[in-house]
Design a protein around this nucleic acid. Structure first.
Length: 202
DNA sequence: CGAGCGATTCGC
DNA sequence: CGAATCGCTCGG
């Protein structure tokens, strides 16, 4: 079937959250949910830094029912419901007590595309995973897979090495939809693969 | 308790 | 451009 090597836990612990956000570009997201496998290539990410970032749910180390998972060791999932409708998928980074996370904003669909189309009730592959809410729906991700480890390929959600040696340039911009963060909305913490077709927005 | 709101998406 | 839709957060 597929022969994807899972990323080790150390991948999620070393470097700051913006560096890890960039390293995640090109990596592979795999889900095995409801007995169905779907796979996509990460093409867009955003960094959230708990201690000093007004856009982060854990700003100033705010530890609440929702954000408590962010304070665990890196390499776990943080999935939350946005606008009461959309699940958003994040990857926790850094050691215990440092609530940093990477939001996965877009994927290039690779396998299980028919399953994604069925889950999203649309036919156009380009629109299956080009947004954080869309990709969660296409991959079957919701709060059920909140707070699980991503560095074991027995997990229902895990991250694998890139399946391609292709080089790419990284575009850096401000983050989407965080105007409430005032001056921190201007931080250049959104990253995507240049010229990729599956980005959420230009 | 309950008002206010959102790391979005889709359709009009 | 506005509605959808619900759980979290915080203040009273």
């Amino acid at each position: 079937m597929h022969n994807i090597k899972v990323l080790p836990k150390s991948f999620f612990l070393n470097g700051d959250v913006t560096a890890i956000s960039q390293r995640l570009l090109g990596k592979i997201l795999v889900t095995n949910i409801d007995n169905q496998i779907t796979i996509g290539r990460i093409v867009e990410t955003e960094a959230y830094h708990g201690s000093k970032d007004k856009a982060c749910h854990a700003y100033l180390h705010r530890n609440t029912k929702r954000t408590s998972v962010m304070f665990k060791d890196g390499g776990r999932s943080y999935v939350y419901l946005c606008y009461g409708i959309h699940s958003l998928f994040n990857i926790i980074t850094h050691g215990e007590g440092q609530p940093n996370a990477v939001l996965i904003r877009a994927l290039e669909p690779l396998e299980g595309i028919d399953i994604m189309k069925e889950r999203r009730s649309i036919a156009l592959a380009r629109n299956l995973c080009n947004g954080p809410g869309k990709l969660a729906q296409a991959m079957g991700i919701d709060k059920v897979v909140n707070d699980i480890v991503l560095y074991e390929n027995s997990s229902p959600v895990w991250i694998g090495e890139s399946n391609s040696d292709l080089k790419f340039d990284i575009v850096t911009t401000t983050r989407i939809g965080v105007d409430y963060a005032e001056e921190d909305a201007l931080l250049p913490w959104r990253f995507y693969i240049k010229n990729n077709t599956y980005i959420s927005r230009k």
